[in-house]
Amino acid sequence: SSRTRFTDYQLRVLQDFFDTNAYPKDDEIEQLSTVLNLPTRVIVVWFQNARQKARK
């Protein structure tokens, strides 16, 4: 499976959201998916990875 290449804009939006809320609800994931034009699955994985990094 090929890795998703995020744009600077997508990363900024995801990071800004994460800084406020590391555990987005389903409807928030749907909204991010629509706004960023990314599959919900990709967003879910991004947040999982971001939470892992934040824990270190």
Rank of each mutant, 00 (worst) to 15 (best):
S1L: 09
S1G: 15
S1F: 14
S2T: 14
S2W: 03
S2G: 12
S2C: 15
T4N: 13
R5C: 15
R5E: 15
R5M: 15
R5L: 15
R5K: 15
F6M: 14
F6W: 05
T7H: 02
T7W: 01
T7V: 05
D8Y: 02
D8Q: 14
D8R: 04
Q10V: 02
Q10W: 01
Q10K: 02
Q10R: 02
Q10F: 00
L11P: 00
L11S: 14
L11N: 13
R12W: 03
V13C: 07
L14D: 01
L14R: 00
Q15A: 11
D16C: 04
D16E: 12
F17H: 14
F18K: 07
D19N: 09
D19G: 11
D19W: 05
D19E: 06
T20N: 10
T20C: 12
N21Y: 02
N21F: 03
N21H: 06
N21V: 05
A22L: 06
A22I: 10
Y23E: 15
Y23H: 10
Y23I: 06
P24T: 01
P24E: 01
P24D: 01
P24R: 02
K25F: 03
K25T: 05
K25G: 10
K25D: 07
D26M: 10
D26R: 11
D26S: 11
D26H: 11
D26L: 05
D27F: 12
D27G: 15
E28R: 05
I29M: 11
I29R: 01
E30T: 11
E30M: 15
E30Q: 15
E30Y: 04
Q31R: 11
Q31T: 05
Q31I: 04
Q31L: 05
L32W: 03
S33N: 05
S33D: 00
S33G: 06
S33W: 00
T34K: 13
T34S: 10
V35F: 06
L36H: 01
L36Y: 01
L36M: 08
L36K: 01
L36Q: 00
N37V: 10
N37A: 11
N37G: 08
N37F: 04
N37D: 10
L38R: 03
P39K: 06
T40I: 15
T40S: 06
R41I: 09
R41T: 13
V42W: 11
I43M: 03
V44M: 08
V44F: 10
V44Q: 11
V45M: 06
W46V: 01
F47D: 03
F47M: 04
Q48R: 09
Q48A: 12
A50G: 08
A50T: 09
A50R: 08
A50L: 05
R51T: 02
Q52E: 14
Q52M: 04
K53E: 15
A54R: 07
A54V: 11
R55E: 08
R55S: 10
K56C: 05
K56P: 13
K56Q: 07
K56D: 10
